[in-house]
Simulated assay, not measured.
Amino acid sequence: MTSPEASVTAGYVHGYSEREAARLGDQADTLAALLHAGTAYPAGSRVLEIGCGVGAQTIHLARANPGAHIVAVDHANDSLAQARARVAAHAPGADVEWHQADLFDLPFAEAEFDHVFVCFVLEHLSDPRQALTALRRVLRPGGTITVIEGDHGSAFFHPASAYAQAAIERQVQLQSAAGGNALIGRQVQPLLAQAGYEDIVVRPRTVYADQTRPALVDGFTRNTFIAMVASARADALAAGLTTAADWDRGITDLHRTAQADGTFHYTFFKAVAVNPASAATAGR
């Protein structure tokens, strides 16, 4: 993020490699039905997507809401360039407007948007409550915000493995050290309440994968979750959080959960809340 928000943001712990961009795409495509179900905006709505990244979620927002005008914002120009290309290729004709901007210095008028969509962003911020409060400024009174976050503490699997669990915990530690929070899913409701939103409804969106659900085994267990944890190897070793042998054993054991006799469970949390009529003074 840019310097004005340095005190309230964290580094993107997963990095910006081509592999990470592909992982984000796999995650969005695999979980589209699970995460986007119920996210419907009326024709003519102005929808702000914060932290659009490489456009992995933007595609699904645009496809599900062809009558809405989506304004996608990210702080990284490189990510925005990838997002434009991705949406042009996979959702041609989508009504999407792109902006490079800082979450805490958005170039929009007060109450400009009917809805705000925030997916996998709060986990990378050191002050997510402040971010949610700041977003109230550009959301009209009575408008809604949708927040989706995961929680690595919800991961459990078979065969059980202390090494695999430790590898996940090392990734959680690295994200925390960078100023983020990989366990934020369980905190979404209180964060929204503290930021002044009302009528908050949070529901778990659970992923369960076994050999009867091969698309989830491949798209989520292998290509989303294990790929994310495995990518932290160099950082975990450099930080002295583990040994190479223990880490590699943990990743091997995680891959066992994607075999024929394995199972994997993870929970995302999806919240919808309303910006109350006092929005005009929010974030000042």
Rank of each mutant, 00 (worst) to 15 (best):
A178L: 07
Q27V: 00
A177C: 09
Y197N: 05
D26I: 01
G15K: 02
T263A: 13
A178D: 15
S7K: 15
C52E: 03
W98C: 03
G93R: 09
G51H: 02
P92D: 03
A62K: 04
S231H: 07
N223P: 05
T9W: 02
G15F: 00
V13E: 08
N77I: 08
E5Q: 11
A167W: 02
V47S: 02
V54M: 12
D199I: 09
F220K: 09
E18A: 14
R222T: 06
P204Y: 11
A160Q: 14
A155H: 11
V54A: 13
A21Q: 08
G51K: 02
I200D: 07
S176G: 13
L103E: 01
W247F: 15
G150T: 06
G143W: 05
P190M: 11
V121S: 01
H158C: 05
L31T: 14
H265Y: 15
Q194N: 00
A91Q: 08
V201M: 10
R63A: 10
A260Q: 11
G38Y: 01
D74C: 12
H36L: 14
D235M: 07
L122D: 06
M1G: 15
G93C: 07
G219P: 03
P92H: 04
V229P: 01
E198L: 13
A83F: 02
F264K: 03
T281S: 10
H60Q: 09
G262A: 04
R19C: 00
G150Y: 00
G219C: 04
E110H: 11
A193T: 08
A94E: 04
D127F: 10
Y16V: 06
F264G: 00
R140D: 10
S278G: 07
L183N: 09
W247R: 07
A279I: 01
G262W: 03
Q171H: 15
M1D: 09
A277H: 10
W247G: 04
D210Y: 05
I145N: 01
D105Y: 00
L174R: 02
D218C: 06
T9E: 01
R284T: 08
A167G: 05
P159Q: 08
I168S: 01
V172A: 10
T242P: 04
G179D: 04
G179K: 01
C52Q: 01
F157T: 06
N223F: 06
L241M: 12
A227V: 07
Q211N: 12
S17D: 08
A162M: 11
P214S: 08
A238M: 14
N275E: 11
A244Y: 07
T263M: 13
G179R: 04
Q27E: 11
Q82A: 15
P42V: 06
A277M: 08
R222Y: 04
G44A: 09
G150M: 06
G150E: 03
H124Q: 15
R63F: 00
A6R: 14
T221F: 06
L174C: 05
H265L: 12
Q82F: 13
R203I: 10
A6S: 12
A215C: 05
T212F: 10
G44L: 00
R86F: 06
P190W: 11
